[in-house]
Amino acid sequence: MAHTFPELVIGGVLLAPFVTYLAAALAVVVVLRPLLHVIGFAKMFSHASIAELSLYVAILGFAMLLF
């Protein structure tokens, strides 16, 4: 039994499900950024931008596994 992936349609253009996952992960990270700032996330790492990118990739992977 094959799993069908729903495509996102914007203006008649079919977008791959991965694009939806990218946007959802970005929205989650944008919502989490103020909380991360409050708890001092950037001070825990020597390269805060790389740590944030890693968090984004982890959330993206988790979204792909869930949906």
Rank of each mutant, 00 (worst) to 15 (best):
G40I: 02
M1L: 14
L60S: 00
L32E: 06
S49P: 04
F62E: 00
T20L: 09
L35T: 11
L14R: 15
F62D: 00
F45Q: 02
E52S: 10
A16S: 10
P6Q: 12
F67N: 13
M1I: 13
V29I: 12
Y21A: 11
F41Q: 04
S49E: 15
P17E: 13
L35K: 05
L36A: 07
K43C: 01
G11T: 08
L32F: 10
F5D: 10
L15T: 00
Y56E: 07
T4H: 15
G12Q: 05
H37Q: 09
Y21F: 12
E52F: 14
K43H: 03
S46K: 14
F41R: 05
V31H: 00
I50C: 07
M44Q: 06
L8S: 11
Y56V: 09
Y21H: 08
L36E: 02
E7I: 01
V13E: 09
L65S: 11
A48P: 06
I10Y: 11
L36G: 01
V57P: 00
L26M: 09
A24W: 00
L65T: 09
L32N: 03
V30C: 00
R33L: 14
T4Y: 09
I59W: 00
I10K: 13
S46Q: 13
T20W: 00
A63C: 14
M64L: 05
V9K: 15
L53C: 06
V38A: 05
A27D: 11
L65A: 15
I10N: 01
P34W: 09
L66F: 09
P17H: 04
V31M: 02
M44R: 14
